[in-house]
Design a binder for these strands. Structure first.
Length: 151
DNA sequence: GCCAACGTTGGC
DNA sequence: GCCAACGTTGGC
């Protein structure tokens, strides 16, 4: 059982959208490191922190749970999609997607500011310099602190 | 394999 | 909109 943080721009897809859809395909990941986390490490039942980026209220907004094993991201073959990948071939796909199911929305945002202000999160990948990954692992310690103390 | 140029992410 | 810190591309 692992824990993850996934970033999304709320103007594109927010925690409210996830709450309404209940289950959504987490697709469009086009970074190799992020892909490898999904492909090699994500398993059904893993906990997911949902993070809003590039917006006025940056931070963790809720939780979800991984509810599928990784599978081929169909958007890589869709030439009309912004996630189209010319190098992907049906017999050799490059990118994977995964399904996640809505779990909770926090009554209050856990802002990036608050996380940065708490020294115990110093080692969290999210606040490490240059950590621009849209999918990253979260330690169980950090997961527990965030859920028990901050939400 | 090197590395310059370019593109993207994402906080501010 | 700015810009730092990446990642990717492609010529050599």
């Amino acid at each position: 059982m692992n824990y993850w943080l996934v970033k999304t721009e709320p103007s594109e897809f927010s925690i409210t959208d996830l709450q309404q859809e209940k289950i959504t395909r987490w697709d469009g990941i086009r970074n190799y490191q992020a892909r490898n986390f999904i492909r090699d490490k994500m398993t059904v039942g893993d906990g997911v922190l949902v993070y809003h980026s590039s917006c006025s209220d940056v931070g963790i907004v809720g939780t979800a749970v991984v509810c599928s094993t990784p599978y081929t991201d169909p958007l890589q073959f869709d030439s009309s999609s912004r996630y189209f990948s010319e190098k992907s071939k049906p017999e050799k796909p490059l990118w994977v997607a995964i399904d996640i199911e809505f779990k909770s929305v926090f009554p209050k945002l856990i802002s990036l500011k608050m996380i940065k202000a708490d020294k115990r999160f110093e080692e969290m990948m999210l606040v490490k310099k240059g950590a621009r990954l849209s999918v990253m692992p979260v330690s169980s310690e950090h997961w527990n602190m965030l859920l028990n103390e901050y939400s």
